[in-house]
Simulated assay, not measured.
Amino acid sequence: MPRRPARPQPAPACPCGTGAAYAACCGRYHAGKESAPTAEALMRSRYAAFARREEAYLLRTWHPRTRPGRLGLDPRTRWLGLEILAAEGGSAFHSTGTVAFRASYEDAAGRQSLTEHSRFERYAGAWVYVDGDHD
Rank of each mutant, 00 (worst) to 15 (best):
R111E: 13
A124P: 02
S113W: 14
R52I: 14
L85T: 08
Y29Q: 10
G89T: 12
R111P: 08
Y105S: 09
A124D: 15
H94Q: 14
H134L: 13
S118N: 04
F101R: 01
T66D: 12
L42C: 02
S104M: 15
R122V: 15
T115N: 04
R60S: 10
E55G: 08
L114R: 03
A87N: 13
L42G: 03
T115W: 01
T38N: 01
V99F: 07
G110W: 01
C26D: 02
F93N: 06
R28A: 13
T98F: 04
A92D: 15
A109P: 07
R67I: 15
R7D: 11
T77Y: 07
T61L: 01
A24C: 08
S35V: 13
G69P: 10
A56G: 11
R76N: 02
A24M: 08
G132M: 12
D74L: 00
L58Q: 02
A124R: 10
E55F: 07
S45F: 10
F101P: 06
R67Q: 11
P75R: 15
F120K: 10
E121D: 00
Y57N: 10
C25P: 08
L80K: 01
Y57A: 07
A100P: 06
E54G: 02
D131K: 05
T96L: 13
L82C: 14
R122T: 15
E40K: 02
E40P: 06
C26E: 00
L80G: 01
C26W: 02
R28S: 02
A23W: 03
V130M: 01
P10F: 00
R76H: 00
P75T: 11
D107F: 01
A51S: 09
S104A: 13
G132V: 11
T98V: 15
E34Y: 11
A49Y: 07
R70Q: 14
Y47M: 03
P68Y: 09
V128R: 07
P37C: 08
R7V: 14
H117S: 12
G32L: 11
G19W: 09
W62T: 11
E54V: 13
H63G: 08
R44W: 01
L85A: 08
E34H: 01
R7S: 04
H94S: 13
E116C: 08
R70T: 12
G81M: 05
E40C: 11
R119N: 05
P12M: 03
A11V: 13
A48V: 14
A92H: 14
A124I: 10
P12S: 06
T98Y: 06
C16G: 03
S118F: 05
W127L: 04
R28C: 14
E88Y: 12
T38Q: 06
T18E: 06
Y22Q: 05
D74K: 11
E55W: 10
I84S: 06
L73I: 14
P2M: 00
Y57D: 04
T61K: 00
A124S: 02
G90K: 13
C14R: 11
A39R: 04
R52S: 01
A51V: 08
A21D: 09
A41Q: 06
R46Y: 01
P8A: 04
A24H: 04
R76V: 10
P12E: 00
G17L: 14
F101M: 10
S104F: 04
E40H: 03
